[in-house]
């Protein structure tokens, strides 16, 4: 469960407000989609949730652990995928996955099993993992990042644009994995620009614009009565209203 309470964050001594008094809860068993235009504050909010940046005010609680007070406990619960997969490319896939598994204390036999499972889900030859990531394509890196993140079986998934670069089959499988994970009583929060993805897999969505949460709730509630239920039109109208 993710609880965000009155999160605010501005950069350059208040010149740019990236998160403006944001509060929400992502319950167990739920997939929440985080959508908004470029520069709206999605990545910033996600970085606050994962402990990468501290909010100017407000608090983050992950499964009961306050990020400011019990950071290590909170971080252990999260699996986080950054918006760019170009990390540690000098390592081989195995070395990177092992690194993450060691950091989160995953036993050897368990990780072997999980790597096999994920490699199959993503259609990756395991021999690829013996090569350095410098030689990987963008999608292969993204998949390796996802595997390394999920190898410790985190309760809370926080994914920043996880579908970017994935082929259709892998994207489909990732969506199914998110569903399965949530159905086991865990929490999934991910950001995306692709409204169809949000529409298909999310139980609830949050729309952020210029640092403010302008909508949170179920897809159904959003659609009823408005614009004939077309999410794209609703989204464009809402963000345009906010700009005005």
């Amino acid at each position: 469960m993710i609880e965000a309470v009155n999160l605010s964050k501005s950069f350059n001594s208040g010149a740019a407000v990236a998160a403006d008094n944001i509060s929400f809860t992502c319950a167990d068993g739920e997939i929440v989609g985080f959508i908004g235009p470029n520069g709206a504050g999605k990545t910033t909010t996600i970085k606050i949730l994962t402990g990468i940046i501290r909010p100017d005010s407000g608090k983050v609680v992950i499964n009961g652990f306050n990020m400011a007070e019990k950071p290590l406990e909170a971080k252990k619960i999260i699996g986080y995928i950054a918006d760019s997969p170009d990390m540690f490319v000098k390592l081989t896939g195995y070395e990177y996955i092992n690194f993450m598994a060691d950091v989160y204390g995953v036993p050897g036999d368990v990780r072997e099993e999980r790597i096999n499972y994920f490699a199959e889900q993503f259609g990756m030859e395991k021999t690829v993992f013996s090569q350095r990531m410098t030689g990987y394509s963008h999608g292969m890196r993204q998949k390796t990042m996802i595997i390394a993140t999920l190898v410790h079986d985190p309760k809370v998934w926080i994914l920043d644009e996880p579908m970017v670069g994935l082929d259709p089959q892998s994207a489909f499988n990732l969506k199914r994995m998110m569903r399965e994970h949530a159905d086991k009583g865990n929490t999934v929060l991910f950001s995306t620009h692709v409204l169809e993805i949000a529409e298909k897999v999310c139980d609830r969505i949050m729309i952020i614009d210029a640092g403010k949460l302008i909508y949170k709730g179920t897809m159904e509630a959003l659609k009823t009565g408005e614009e004939g239920g077309d999410l794209e039109k609703i989204f464009l109208k809402m963000t345009a209203e906010e700009q005005a």
Partner: peptide, 22 residues
């Protein structure tokens, strides 16, 4: 680019050690 590093996932290290190796 190829690397001849061991293709095994079962070598476990402590967090400190794995950071050091990295």
């Amino acid at each position: 680019q190829k690397s001849a590093s061991a293709a095994s996932a079962s070598v476990t290290r402590t967090a400190g050690m794995t950071l050091f190796v990295k």
